[in-house]
């Protein structure tokens, strides 16, 4: 079986936002709204007193193995593929936002009829969206199916985003996860996320 996952190495993420732009263009997201990103990169200071760091922290859907967004979804619009990718079917979704409420990772994005209309003007003849939905990162399933990497991974200038198959012991990301250097966010919630982070901060002292 394939079990897709992403490892994000915070050590080489430079906060360039190329991933945000790539994802927006690849997945025709509503860029006219500054808050509607499938992926976004925090740019924040972290640390106490003078021991301060600037951290770039990319975020996206974690494609949880136990996804609360899917459980609560009444229409079945949110579903999980056998390869581990959690998808949203725009035709089934009625936009109740229960998934957004359930997701602990702020990974869901509302796309309204107004957005769909704007999208037709913005993306023109190629616009693929037909209806609203509470959208999210798809791990670029359409690319992955063709053997390509997700758009954000492909362009990541810091090679901070790595994509691979956890079920393949040869895969570097599987090894990173197995060795414990790459760890998920808020595992205590029990979502069993498939996005892992390599820590960038070696605190002094």
């Amino acid at each position: 079986m394939t079990h897709y996952a992403m490892v994000i190495d915070l050590n080489t993420c430079v906060g360039c936002n190329a991933c945000m732009a790539a994802c927006a263009m690849e997945n025709q997201t509503p860029v006219w709204d500054k808050n509607k990103w499938r992926t976004y990169v925090h740019d924040k200071e972290i640390g106490l007193g003078s021991d301060v760091h600037r951290r770039f922290f990319p975020r996206l859907c974690n494609h949880c193995d136990n996804p609360p967004c899917m459980t609560v979804c009444p229409t079945g619009a949110t579903y999980k593929k056998p390869n581990g990718i959690v998808m949203v079917d725009q035709d089934l979704c009625m936009g109740c936002r229960a998934c957004a409420m359930a997701c602990p990772y702020q990974a869901r994005v509302e796309v309204s009829w107004a957005d769909v209309k704007e999208g037709r003007a913005f993306y023109g003849s190629d616009y693929r969206r037909r209806r609203p939905s509470v959208d999210k990162c798809s791990f670029c399933d359409h690319r992955v199916e063709q053997g390509l990497k997700p758009a954000c991974v492909e362009t990541c200038v810091g090679s901070a985003r790595l994509f691979g198959d956890l079920d393949d012991p040869e895969d570097p990301i599987a090894q990173m996860v197995a060795s414990g250097v790459a760890r998920p966010l808020m595992p205590h919630i029990g979502t069993r996320p498939n996005v892992y982070y390599i820590d960038d901060i070696r605190w002094r002292g």
Binding site: G76, M94, C96, P132, V134
Partner: peptide
């Protein structure tokens, strides 16, 4: 709830 649905048509699914 219905009034706040993004896609009222799709309510048919529930």
């Amino acid at each position: 709830l219905f009034g706040h649905l993004l896609d009222k048509f799709a309510v048919i699914n529930v």
